[in-house]
């Protein structure tokens, strides 16, 4: 074990936070938000893999694989929706999608 678990966790946490920051900050573009979410999920996978390595079992890696599948499904659905909404409103700025409030 060359990299200690704590380092992995710190990196993952930072990644997670950065991803979240991206999602929160880049509200003008849905695509960027999706990328932010990807980063967050990558941080999660990193944690799983790190955990797997730490304990010497494959469970975490399995989880990561599943997460990948999940992510791709999510992104495909999100993109489909973005296309649909772009057609309706000619924009990908999430702040413009505020017809419901209160």
């Amino acid at each position: 074990m060359s990299v200690p678990l704590s380092h992995i966790l710190i990196v993952a946490s930072l990644m997670f936070a950065m991803g979240l920051g991206c999602v929160v900050a880049w509200r003008a573009n849905v695509i960027m938000m999706l990328i932010g979410i990807e980063i967050m999920l990558n941080a999660v996978m990193l944690t799983f893999v790190g955990g797997s390595a730490h304990w010497g079992i494959a469970d975490g890696q399995l989880f990561s694989l599943m997460l990948m599948a999940l992510t791709s499904a999510e992104v495909s659905l999100a993109l489909a929706m973005v296309v649909y909404l772009h057609r309706r409103k000619q924009t990908v700025n999430t702040d413009r999608f505020d017809s419901m409030k209160g």
Binding site: V23, R27, T94, D98, M100, K101
Partner: peptide, 17 residues
């Protein structure tokens, strides 16, 4: 409190975060 729900998803995410 209802006005907190601005309709902008970014606000929701910020609150969440």
């Amino acid at each position: 409190l209802g006005r907190w729900s601005t309709g902008r998803v970014a606000v929701y995410l910020i609150s969440f975060a």
